Simulated scan of single mutants.
Amino acid sequence: MLGSNVTTVNVDTLPGLNTLGVSIVRIDFAPYGGLNPPHIHPRGTEVLVVLEGTLLVGFVSSNQDNNRLFTKVLNKGDVFVFPIGMIHFQLNIGKTPAVAFAGLSGQNPGVITIANATFGSDPPINPDVLTKAFMLDKNVVQYLQSKF
């Protein structure tokens, strides 16, 4: 549905990484529009390198920094860093598939996909909370929750 596939190698999939403080992921993106959606790694900084294709990448700074968006278009061989805990994403803007590898500074950096966690929690977050927090109509919130 999102047009991306993330293959993770962390301490859960390779126990030999225990105590080494590193993990890696391969991300394969479908042509134009393949998306690794907004997410965070609560326990690791990410260094991304593009092997093939063209990606629009970005992260959002903290509330104290007015939630500034930092973006860049990356091509084959380019590298970008996503600081620990910052919401970030990657989008294939090229006409061909894209491939990237990311090294993370933790044996289990974790991942929290923003939309899934917000609209797909189990049990669901009370729609009144999300209606007010996102300034949306309650029907829109309930519709979004139904998608997850």
Results as ranks from 00 to 15, higher is better:
6 V>G: 10
31 P>R: 10
29 F>R: 07
34 G>F: 03
88 H>V: 00
96 T>N: 11
62 S>T: 14
73 V>M: 00
50 V>I: 02
84 I>P: 00
141 V>T: 05
50 V>L: 00
114 I>W: 06
10 N>I: 14
69 L>V: 14
2 L>W: 14
99 V>Q: 07
120 G>R: 00
90 Q>C: 04
119 F>M: 03
85 G>H: 04
89 F>S: 00
52 E>K: 13
10 N>W: 13
1 M>R: 14
133 A>T: 09
130 L>K: 01
7 T>C: 12
34 G>D: 04
72 K>H: 04
17 L>H: 12
5 N>T: 15
119 F>H: 03
109 P>N: 12
119 F>N: 01
3 G>M: 11
74 L>I: 05
31 P>S: 12
58 G>C: 02
123 P>F: 05
30 A>R: 08
71 T>N: 02
43 R>A: 11
69 L>C: 07
28 D>W: 06
139 N>P: 02
84 I>A: 05
134 F>H: 05
67 N>E: 13
4 S>G: 14
98 A>H: 00
6 V>R: 14
77 G>S: 03
111 V>E: 09
112 I>F: 02
134 F>E: 08
72 K>I: 00
118 T>Q: 03
26 R>M: 10
63 N>E: 15
13 T>L: 14
89 F>Y: 05
47 V>L: 09
47 V>G: 01
147 K>E: 11
31 P>T: 11
59 F>L: 08
20 L>S: 15
71 T>Y: 01
145 Q>P: 01
63 N>A: 15
47 V>Q: 06
60 V>E: 09
45 T>S: 08
65 D>E: 15
146 S>V: 07
83 P>Y: 04
23 S>H: 10
90 Q>F: 00
117 A>R: 04
95 K>Y: 12
118 T>P: 02
112 I>V: 13
94 G>I: 06
65 D>I: 11
101 F>N: 06
81 V>I: 09
62 S>I: 08
18 N>G: 14
144 L>S: 03
81 V>A: 02
26 R>H: 10
43 R>H: 14
88 H>I: 01
70 F>S: 11
26 R>V: 07
56 L>F: 01
63 N>P: 11
78 D>H: 02
47 V>K: 03
6 V>A: 13
61 S>A: 11
117 A>I: 02
84 I>E: 10
20 L>R: 15
44 G>E: 05
7 T>I: 15
51 L>F: 10
35 L>G: 04
74 L>Y: 02
59 F>S: 07
18 N>I: 15
55 L>R: 08
117 A>Y: 05
73 V>T: 10
28 D>L: 08
7 T>V: 14
33 G>W: 03
139 N>A: 12
136 L>M: 03
